[in-house]
């Protein structure tokens, strides 16, 4: 089973984690001024890259904290994990 390194608890089995979708999706600054199309884009539309992808994960069965991870969508390899208050690290 794939091990995911939680920034706090260390490497744990994948079943302990919950996937949270794309990371760094900023809430619209002027939400009241948004058109329906812009709202739909914010709520439903996400990147789907082939390669490194910044995602949100939650250590649901462990410390129950959210963190971010950069995962290569081709190999499922986790290139980096970092806490939500940290910047996305540079990965190759």
């Amino acid at each position: 089973m794939q091990l995911i390194p939680c920034p706090w608890c260390g490497p744990r089995e994948e079943v302990e984690f919950h996937y949270g979708g794309q990371a760094h999706v900023a809430y619209p600054a002027e939400s009241a001024a948004l058109s329906d199309e812009e709202w739909a884009k914010f709520v439903f539309f996400r990147d789907n890259p082939r390669g490194p992808f910044a995602e949100r994960w939650s250590h649901a069965a462990g410390c129950r904290r959210w963190f971010n991870a950069v995962r290569d969508t081709r190999s499922y390899e986790l290139l980096a994990v970092y806490r939500p208050d940290q910047e996305r690290p540079v990965t190759t």
Partner: peptide, 10 residues
């Protein structure tokens, strides 16, 4: 002290 699953139970 670990929080984990034992036989799928938290």
């Amino acid at each position: 002290c670990v929080q984990t699953l034992l036989a799928q139970a938290g």
